[in-house]
Each structure stands twice: as C-alpha cells, then as structure tokens.
Design a protein around this nucleic acid. Structure first.
Lengths: 327, 327
DNA sequence: CTGTTAGCGCTTTCAT
DNA sequence: ATGAAAGCGCTAACAG
C-alpha cells in the first residue's frame, strides 16, 4: 500500500503538500501540483480513508437498518438511499434487523465503532430512549420514533381510509380486512381506518389476522370465505397479502373483480405482475428513501438540523381488481 | 467520545493494559481486569474501530457489489451474505452497480480506500484484468471472471437443457425462447442450451429478444404469438420474463398449461405468487450467497486460498404451468 | 507557497 | 504483570 509519505518522497515535496493537492485545499503552485499528481498516478496512490476518518472523525459512511431486504417493500427504499448518498460521496452499510431490537442495537453499536456519520432506520422496536446515547444524525423512515427525531413517513390512516372508501364506491357492502401484525404501528393504523369507515357506514366488520406474509394470507382468505361466503370486497393490509388473497381467489375460481373486489397497500411491483392487476394505495417508496437520505445528508453536513417530519402523499392506483371494465 | 486513554486514567492503569483487556490478549491480573472492565462499563466506552483498522490494516468490513438490489433475484443473495458475515463479526457494504463497469470500478476504489477486507462481486463486465491491482480476497458470484478468482455459480447450460427437455417431455413441439441480454453470459448459455436441444430434436427455433425485464417480456410474447400462433411451449430466459409471458398469455385468454406450457429460470418468489404457478429451474440462491460469503471469510482469515470454483445444483420445480392436472 | 510537527485512538514491541 | 513509547496514514495548525 502506497502512502502519502512515499508520494511525497517521490515528488520531492512534503506530505503536507501532497495532502493539499489531494484535498484541493490551500495553496499549491501549479508546477508543484503537477509533480505531485504525476507521482500519484505513477505510484497508483490511493488515499487511505481509514486514516482520514481517524483524524476527521467522520468516515463518509452511513448506516442503514431495515427489517429484511428480502421483503419486496425494501429494495427500492434501499436503492433510493444508495443513489443519493453515493452521489454525495458516501458509502452505505446495509443491515437486516429482522425487526429484532437486539440486532438493531448490535448494529447501532457496530456503526458507532466504525465512526459512521449518520444512520437511517426502519424499525418498529426502536424508541427514543434506545437512541439516547447515540449522538449521531438519525432519520426514521416509514415510522416516527419521537418528535425529536426527524422522519419520513406516509399517512397510513388516510391511505387506508381511501382504500376502503374506494371499495364502498364500487358497491361493496361486505368488506373484509386482512390486518397485519399488531407490533407494526402502520398496520394498526390501517386497521383502525378500516374499522372507522365501516362503522361510519354501519357496515359489518370482518377481520382476518394476517402477518404481512404471502402464504398465510392465502390461507386466511380461504377460511374467511368459509365463514362469510358473501364477502364482496377485501382490503388487505399490505400488497404482499393482497397477492396472497388474489391467489386464493383465483384458485377458488372466484372472479375478481366481478364477485369480489380487492385493494392492497404499498404499491410494490408484485401488484402489477399478477392477473388481474391489483388496485392499491401506492406509497412513493423511492421518493421516501430519497427524501430520508437527503435529510440525512443535510444533517451530516450541518446544513439542516431539527425535527422535520415529512409526510408524503399516497396515491390510489385503480387497477383491475376494482375495475369491472378493464380486465 | 470516550477513548482508551480516559478509561486508562479512570481505572488508573496504562492504555496498554486497557488494550489487553478489551482484546483479551496478554497477561492481565484478574483484579486489574476487573477495575478496567468496571471503568469501561461506567464510562460506556466503545473501542474505535477506525483507529483499530488503521493499525491492523484490516477493517472487519466487506464489500458487496451487485447490479441492482431492485431486481428480485438479488435480495436473497444479499441477505445470505449478510447472515454469514455478520456472524463472523463483519459488516457489509452494499453497492449497486447497474452492471456498469465505471460504477463497479468506482466502488472498488472506494473499498480499497476504506481498507475493506474482501469483496463479493456479481458482475458481467469485470474481467481479471480489472482486478489486477486489487490485492484483496475476492469471490465472484453467479459468474466466473477468471480461473484464478474463486467463484460460486450454477450450471446454466445444464439447467436450461433440462427446462427445454421438460417442455419436450410434456408434448410441446413448437417451443419459443425469450432470450436475455447478450452481454449477460448466463443468458447466452441458456439460449445456447435451448438451441442445442431444439436442433437435436429437429425442431424449429423461435427466439424472442428479451432483456430480463418484465414489461418487455409481455410485449415480446404478444408479437411472438402473432408471428407464430401455434407456439405450444415457452422457455423464458429468467423468471421475471416468465412472469411477463404469463401475464401476456392470461390477458390473451390463452390457457396455461393447456394451450401453452411455460418454464422459467432462477426460482424467484414471483413464480409462486402468480396463477398458475410457474415451473422453473430453481437456483439455490440463498445457498449461493452463503457459500460465497463463507469462501470469502475463509480467505480473509487465511484458512483457505486458491481458486475454488463451486458449481451448485439447480432444481427443476414442476409447477402448474407445465402440469395439466393441478391447476 | 511549502515544510515541520503534533496528534487522531489504538496496538504492540520492549523494558521493567 | 504492567507501563512507556513508537507508529499506523493522514490532516491542520504553525512557522517560515
């Protein structure tokens, strides 16, 4: 490994000068700069970012904790973050927490040890108190931890309301909801919205217990239909479950949307790969990641501080599972 | 940030002693150790891994370059790698290259600058010569770069042959193939296998140009059917395209598998979310990631060297798109 | 404009 | 068994 010292010797200048040219900082005569650049090229010198980090106490690395990259909601979110951070010269550590507080804390420790400059977290466990002695720019994504910690989210309650109302507007009277895990706050909000709309319209509440997983949703839908054969609409707590529901329906030769209409939530690609395509409340997933990353960068660079809480808009994407005409 | 010095002062010992206890190395009297541990706990000291890396010239970090985490083939591969590396105390840098050589090289540089200990690469551009002055343990995943660089792959040619033969065995006579991008070696191997089997059986070759993308596959399938309305089998170069093909077929009200049978390649989850479920040549994706990560760890720890080239087995998963009875 | 030098926090000889 | 001190590669005063 070539060091700055060797470059300095080769170029016959001091290490300070070499440092100046590689950082483009301070005065260096054009001629000297040339010499140094020449030496750098010839020796194939590469600055050692570890040494740099040690001195500067910042590493140009950020951490990113998500529950599970294997969940189709996350890849886009991850991609967006990387796209903006890499432009700003940062590299990204990816950590899968499985939504397990222990793992999350373990990763946070590691990041601290590695002098990470900031971190983006998607978590249902972390609360403000876990972050107390983490003196680091943090942005919460997809969930609010605390008013003091900036966040990027969507309005789950509002989105879910629109989903259920859309079913109503399409003539559904007996609408079932597949709820998500109770530890996930988003999923509770979506459920609450469903319940509220149904109550407001004096319609029966039918809830199936789901876990945001595909396979189970398929099963749950089947049992739900045995109990309530007259269901004519389903609001799935997320798209992954919506796909499971659709599969169950297809298998039972129940026509969608003619017999049962279906709406999901999230806007993942899966909703467009199946037939019929699934109507969903789409989150601006990529934009959320982008926004969170931008906010983090600003905080790291000291251009912004404080507790922004960005709430982005969801969009009802009307597709074939609620649209009789099209499929 | 608490440093080793402060701990030393607090415990009234030298930094050397503190270092000995945190690393569990060298002689420390039980009593002294207690004092130091006490101090560490009280001060909430955390060793600075940057300083450590600088000295040791290894960072306990590995890099991971994939084309695009958004492609449904990669999340599992990424997850597997993280699962094994984190157990060995490493953290993982994720990089999306978009299969762009420039980006790949940029990331490689960054990794070098950060004293990364090793790297796993999935790439169709990188060749041995690009890695010449990267003196770092490397494992190639999903593709072989050079005989000198260890790799984990599957036998694409063999898998594809089995796919086509499976269609043949199910009575298909007019089998079309949707090929992938020509720059992707895997895709060429799969195409070659298709061509060979068809020639051996004196059957016509019908190839549609795909790009491993979903939307385009849908279109391509439609035009292919206009030219050859009597196609009775399709071998898609990957599962993503297979899903596109299926969607086109569903839309055209062509019954699968009765009128046309379909086989994909990869074994991604998408093949199970759609109806009918898609028969595919499944790669052991998770195992591939795991194996690659294990090999990298071994090389970093000096437990293994040399040029292992692991070729894992694919598995024909017979599902509804080739099985008349089931759906 | 350029060089000298003192650290950044840690590990590791080398003494004691 | 413990401490003193050198040094990993780099940056930033400071001096000239």
């Amino acid at each position: 490994m070539i060091t700055i010292k060797e470059v300095a010797k080769y170029a016959d200048v001091s290490v300070a000068t070499v440092s100046r040219v590689i950082n483009n900082k301070g005065y260096v005569q054009a001629e000297t700069r040339q010499k140094v650049e020449e030496a750098i090229r010839l020796l194939n010198y590469r600055p050692n970012n570890v040494a740099r980090s040690l001195f500067k106490k910042q590493s140009k690395m950020i951490g990113y904790i998500v529950p599970d990259i294997t969940n189709p909601y996350f890849p886009q979110l991850v991609r967006a973050v990387e796209d903006v951070t890499v432009k700003a010269g940062f590299t990204t550590f990816l950590c899968n927490s499985d939504d397990d507080l222990q793992k999350e804390q373990m990763y946070l420790e590691k990041m601290l040890e590695n002098h990470i400059d900031g971190v983006i977290i998607v978590s249902n466990n972390i609360e403000a108190r876990h972050l107390e002695n983490i003196h680091l720019p943090i942005v919460a994504l997809d969930r609010v931890f605390h008013e003091k910690i900036p966040s990027v989210t969507i309005d789950n309650y509002d989105g879910a309301r629109r989903a259920v109302m859309h079913l109503l507007e399409n003539g559904c009277k007996k609408i079932a909801h597949l709820k998500g895990p109770e530890i996930i706050e988003n999923s509770n909000l979506r459920k609450k919205a469903y319940e509220d709309v149904m109550e407001e319209n004096k319609l029966p509440i039918i809830i199936g217990a789901g876990n945001y997983q595909f396979k189970d949703a398929e099963m749950t839908m089947k049992s739900l239909l045995e109990l309530h054969p007259d269901i004519d609409g389903v609001f799935a707590g997320n798209d992954v479950m919506a796909v499971g529901v659709l599969k169950a329906l297809n298998r039972m030769r129940i026509h969608v949307p003619e017999q049962i209409k279906l709406v999901g939530f999230d806007g993942i690609e899966w909703t467009e790969t199946v037939s019929p395509e699934i109507t969903t409340i789409a989150q601006p997933i990529y934009d959320m990641g982008k926004k969170a990353a931008t906010m983090l960068m600003e905080r790291i660079n000291g251009q912004a501080v404080g507790e922004d809480h960005i709430v982005l808009e969801t969009e009802l994407k009307v597709r074939e599972t609620t649209n009789n005409g099209k499929f």
